[in-house]
């Protein structure tokens, strides 16, 4: 299988160096080749397991349960101003 490493890396929003791209290509190919053995398993009509115990999503009352913690939650941010996250310009 040929994996377009650069395309996958862009989907994952990671800019790889040329060296990383060269190294990861064969590694991903060998990992996916190992995973290919799943194709041997007959899974016709088998339901998929997303959660080990098939638990239904619990519901809770629709009430406000937490207070405003904006300052504490923004403290780890790389850059904020007036309670807003600052990022590079998006629209010209």
């Amino acid at each position: 299988m040929d994996i377009d490493v650069k395309k996958v890396a862009m989907l994952a929003r990671i800019r790889l160096t040329e060296q990383e791209t060269r190294d990861l290509g064969p590694q991903l190919t060998s990992i996916m080749a190992y995973i290919e053995q799943l194709a041997e398993v007959d899974t016709d009509g088998v339901t998929a397991t997303a959660h080990p115990h098939d638990a239904a999503m619990p519901l809770r009352a629709d009430v406000v349960s937490n207070t405003n913690k904006r300052d504490a939650l923004q403290k780890p941010a790389p850059l904020t101003e007036s309670g807003l996250y600052v990022v590079p310009k998006v629209i010209e």
Partner: peptide, 12 residues
């Protein structure tokens, strides 16, 4: 990175 890319590929 290897795991993120493996996952991103499997889900693509």
């Amino acid at each position: 990175k290897r795991r993120i890319l493996t996952g991103a590929f499997a889900l693509s």
